[in-house]
Design a protein around this nucleic acid. Structure first.
Lengths: 165, 165
DNA sequence: ATGATTTGAATTGTGCACAATTTAAATTGT
DNA sequence: ACAATTTAAATTGTGCACAATTCAAATCAT
């Protein structure tokens, strides 16, 4: 067993289908889906952020990029992609839009011409203050206990890790 | 208190910011976000389904629609939208694509000409058998215990309900 | 009955996601 | 040194999401 990933659970139907549960669940029934509520909740979150972020002219994803840049000041596309589980196909146009709004600067690295360095601008830094109330307002809408929120986060991170890539 | 929705928790920062926690968390720090892992996990799920669904020429969302139609045989756009938390702007083109593939039929209701009835075709019904292994294969990739899966689902449904609409 | 309102879908336009491909620069192997 | 490979971004094309608008049919109000 040369793998650090040990658990190997089986939920609705087992991995090797020798089945025979007393509680037979129809895994092809819409209401028995686990991931669709996840999918819908993720959409609901971006919908809930939208009116809060409209005021500072950011989408939810752009807001997440800005959050990384408030912290790191400068990152390249690969680093952003690793943090956000996104590739250049998604990030390049998004970063161009942030550049057009004046919140980031996109220039080539001088050490490695392939690398595109994304750095925050003065206007981008100011956004951090304008966005101060956003987390609290969203937490209010979401109305989850800290325990529920942490558990949700933990489970999502586990799933994300298990699904790999 | 004329509201059935009672809890009103406050997580990262309280709704009315009179703050002062011993454990001060910076809600503007990327790593402290609760919803971004949710967002990333949802993307990872559709990514994980993709190779499984390619064989039957369905996207994840199309697969969810087919699941509803395997059960109900016929639904209108509004009913689909209520189940899936999506509107006609998303569903109409998706249903046209399913129609083009021959998995559903789209016709007007004769009782109410505004209503578009979506009914499953023979080919659409056959998909249910071809897709039999999909839930098990995904469960295997996800590798969550039944308890974890149920808890994740429950938390997502709570969040979805709290965020409303 | 008919004008006003409401309702169910469709349309339009913007912004993700992401597979697949392309481009150019850096690195590796001999 | 330089051909082959690898790597970082960008590009292309398809399919969601969703706000906003439009359109037509049904319902309501007088």
């Amino acid at each position: 067993m040369p793998n650090s990933k040990s658990p190997n659970h089986q939920s609705a139907q087992p991995c090797s289908p020798q089945a025979q549960q007393s509680q037979v669940v129809d895994a092809q029934l819409f209401d028995n889906q686990v991931c669709f509520p996840l999918y819908s909740a993720a959409n609901a979150v971006t919908r809930a952020y939208r009116p809060l972020l409209d005021a500072i002219d950011l989408t939810y994803l752009q807001y997440m990029v800005m959050m990384l840049l408030w912290q790191h000041k400068q990152m390249n596309v690969k680093e952003l992609g690793e943090q956000m589980y996104l590739d250049s196909g998604t990030l390049t146009p998004l970063l161009k839009r942030l550049e057009a709004k004046g919140f980031v600067e996109r220039r080539r690295s001088e050490l490695d011409e392939r690398v595109r360095l994304i750095s925050i601008t003065e206007a981008g830094l100011e956004l951090k203050f304008k966005a101060q109330s956003v987390p609290g307002e969203l937490a209010c809408k979401a109305d989850m206990s800290p325990e529920q929120a942490m558990e949700l986060k933990r489970l999502c991170q586990t799933l994300l890790a298990n699904l790999g890539s």
